[in-house]
Design a protein around this nucleic acid. Sequence first.
DNA 1: CTGAAAGCGCTTACAG
DNA 2: CTGAAAGCGCTTACAG
Lengths: 340, 340
Amino acid sequence: MKKVSIKDIAKEAGVSFSTVSIVLNGQGKERKISDKMITEIFKVADQLNYRPNQFAKSLRTGKTFTLGLIVDDISNYFFGHLAKFVEEEADKFGYTVMFCNSENNEGKARNVLGTLLDKQMDGYIIAPTSGMVNEIENLVREKKPIVLIDRYFQNVPSSYVTIDNYKGAYDSVDYLIRQGYQKIALVTNETDQIQILDRVEGYKAALRKHKISFLPELVKKISFKNTEQKTIKELETFIKAQPAIDAILFTSNNLGIPGLQSLRNLNIKIATDIGVICFDDHDLFRLAFPGITVVSQPIKTISKKVVKLLLDQIDGNVSKDHQIVLPPNLIIRDSTPLRS
Amino acid sequence: MKKVSIKDIAKEAGVSFSTVSIVLNGQGKERKISDKMITEIFKVADQLNYRPNQFAKSLRTGKTFTLGLIVDDISNYFFGHLAKFVEEEADKFGYTVMFCNSENNEGKARNVLGTLLDKQMDGYIIAPTSGMVNEIENLVREKKPIVLIDRYFQNVPSSYVTIDNYKGAYDSVDYLIRQGYQKIALVTNETDQIQILDRVEGYKAALRKHKISFLPELVKKISFKNTEQKTIKELETFIKAQPAIDAILFTSNNLGIPGLQSLRNLNIKIATDIGVICFDDHDLFRLAFPGITVVSQPIKTISKKVVKLLLDQIDGNVSKDHQIVLPPNLIIRDSTPLRS
DNA sequence: CTGAAAGCGCTTACAG
DNA sequence: CTGAAAGCGCTTACAG
């Protein structure tokens, strides 16, 4: 079961192996190789079940037809679906994808980026951790094809695709207030990542618009390092300490899901006792009873845009519009009824 | 920003590039390269920020330090978590993982396997579709490192890691009957995949044990090709047609989640009106109200075993116990109360 | 102790 | 129309 190479085909077909290479790469016609030779070579290649050695190819051409994807956590609803659609889209163009989880942790993120760089991906799709600014800056400077997702760095001129996070939060809070909620808590992560900061700003702006004063004690920040259990406990404590709260905006799934658990533990009824909105849709929110109102991201569109942007860079076509901000979608369910 | 190679280091350090290669591969000591040379070479490599070209390496050594993972759908709870843990585990040993979705579709599955083969993964982790028997058989015959997950082929002597699906279903139905349920429906997929067939067998066996006769009309089979909407509709029709049903066992998430939706649409109350158990845990089942009783798979353990088995094969250590069947875990929640 | 050389499997100017 | 040759960046016997 020896691996068959271009030489084996050459021997079998009675030509030099350069000719084989040319034909197999579809340049037979333009190089005026005789038709019968072309047919013959393809036949032999087929018979021997030839599969080109990709290393050799990559070593020569520098291309790998592989995209690197770094996300926080692939088992997360948002990133899992993103990964799926990215793979689907990349597959259409003959690319495969290699994924790594950063666990939202600087060290791990830098390591996996290093590994992907060593394996010379043709392009990179990265949800960057805060500490990666320098690495990303370098990649951009070196003109490596790269598209950031979910967040970006304001001072780094990279391509990215995100949603309008400010608007997502603004619309949610505006909607809550119109529904009659007044004491709206914000549960968010302790981070300087732009997508989170924008959500916080959107929250504040909506309060301002309605002349409701911003109360720092209604904002709870959770560390990325928390276990889910710890988050649940912290949220219980927070909610108990602020009994006047009549609604909560969670800035992510990772917060909203334990949040639901905390509310259940405290025996606080969603909709009846408290309004709830969460960023990012999820099967749970769709099917929970009551259904949870969410700010949903158009994950499929994001994935398509990301792959498009990246392949354009790889192919040397500079996209003029390489920083894409998509509109979020407020999906109203039963967790935010009119406040009586 | 030219890529620095081993030659650049050699020139800088004033030695031949073979020496550099030897030192960088940590064989300096045993090849008795002088200590100062070793230090010098490492220093230069560091200064020049040298990163070895992996193609060249792979071309010579045949190793890629990459594992290929083929799952039905990475955005699925079970496979997403599996992928995460596999990556985590592989990372510990210096391997990265390339993933592909088969979409449970023969053509796609065969394609992605071909691509991974071309890219010469060091090993393969595959949730095989039914049509892949021949491909898997070939891989096994060619002694390619491979471990199947979630299901396997009875006539192919490959490594695999699954749970005891028969027992999972048996225990669930046995439990339901002890709780007083009598008319237990089974909602499953239309497939000949072993993990599903085993679940069906477990269901039948438990009925037999309790001398409840098996009624074919209580079994609903759903096609993998269905959209979620179609499944919801089909399940509504099925449930309406069998009003005597007092419990349902769903053999997978992809069935249970639309199932919950169907029940809601029909205004049938889980726990009060009907008992529900589903295969594979999920955030939704944990936090739904009422919480859904599930047959949970030890995903982390599965992932560890899979990677262990695969790396053993890669390293040429034949594991005696290469077909692992782990016990499932019946997690009892509120969807299966004592039937009054 | 260290270096020259072959070779992994390709692609691609170049020559004829 | 087709082939000989160089080279991508490494590793690894082999020689001295």
